[in-house]
Simulated scan of single mutants.
Amino acid sequence: MAQQQMTQQQMTQQQTADEFLIWLKGQIPLINHMGFGDLVYDGQSLQMPASLAPNVNDKGTGFGGSLSTVATLCGWALVTLYLREQGRDCDVMIRDSQINYLAPITDDFYAEVALPDAAELKTFMSYLDNKGRGRLNLEIEVKQGDQVAMTLKGAYVAVEKKM
């Protein structure tokens, strides 16, 4: 029974991710040209795949600006999806970030991020409840296969929308 419930939950989360990507493409037209594949979301982590072809530079490798865009967007999307699941309507933005390029991307790639531990999430939600804004620090990895090609450490801020 638990296995069946888990499967239903996974299906619901994947449907949420599919609908989110459709919404996102309507909100940010640029990403319609970046070769995004289907998001993989499990309620705790998110993978955002992209094709190399529309993100290639003059050397035939992944363009740094595209990689940072995919990573930034992946973190933003995870925070937004998490807040929506909590019933929160917030504006989410990246406050600051640090990027490290570790290896060239020579094929299709993906960004991957996971929510922080429960204590950090509790603090984040407490700040939202008490101050109307909160911050989450995330580390996003851009990978080709299992190789990490870039990391982005970013502070994402969520602000409750005013009614």
Score class of each variant (00 low, 15 high):
S45W: 10
P54L: 03
V92A: 08
L152D: 05
A155G: 09
L78Y: 07
G26M: 01
V157C: 01
A158F: 06
E19Q: 15
R135F: 01
G37R: 02
N55I: 06
G64S: 08
I22D: 05
A158N: 10
A71N: 04
T61H: 03
G35Y: 00
P29R: 15
M163T: 13
A53Q: 11
N130P: 09
V157Q: 00
K143R: 02
M1Y: 11
V157H: 01
C74G: 01
L136T: 02
K122D: 15
A103N: 04
A149Y: 09
K143F: 01
Q3K: 11
L102K: 08
A2N: 12
S45L: 07
T69N: 07
D117Y: 10
P29T: 14
T61S: 05
Y101V: 02
A158C: 03
Q147F: 09
Y101H: 06
T16N: 12
D108E: 02
T80V: 04
C74V: 00
P54G: 07
E139M: 04
N100G: 13
T61L: 02
N130T: 13
S126P: 14
I22L: 03
L30S: 11
E141G: 06
K59L: 09
G154P: 03
F109C: 06
F36W: 12
E120S: 15
M11R: 13
M34A: 04
G134D: 04
G26D: 04
R88D: 04
I31D: 04
L24E: 12
L121T: 09
V79M: 01
Q27L: 09
Q144R: 11
Y82W: 01
I28N: 09
T80M: 02
K161R: 13
M1E: 12
W23N: 11
L81F: 08
G60F: 07
D89N: 15
G37F: 06
M1N: 12
Y110Q: 11
